[in-house]
């Protein structure tokens, strides 16, 4: 699957209206960012808990 094909599939899932032209024009930017971000997977996380706070308190 080419980059634009893969991106087209991904954008369909988001339901974000985007033209074929924009996907073609920005394919390198989109793919580059996704590849950069996917690098967060290249580590061993064990039982590490995400740094996303939620507090049940109402104060």
């Amino acid at each position: 699957m080419t980059d634009p094909d893969r991106l087209r599939t991904l954008f369909t899932a988001t339901e974000l209206p985007i033209s074929e032209e924009r996907i073609e024009q920005n394919a390198e930017t989109f793919s580059g960012l996704l590849a950069l971000i996917a690098a967060v997977r290249d580590h061993d996380y064990g039982d590490t808990v995400p740094a996303t706070p939620f507090r049940a308190s109402w104060s």
Binding site: L7, L10, F11, T14, L16, I18, R22, N26, T29, F30, L33, L34, I37, A38, V40, R41, H43, Y45, T48, V49, P50, A51, T52
Partner: peptide, 21 residues
Amino acid sequence: NEAGELIPAVDYITAQRMRTL
């Protein structure tokens, strides 16, 4: 903004785990 819509939730959460590390 368009690029951000493509980020898998798994990568976002993994980044938050990296932040803890």
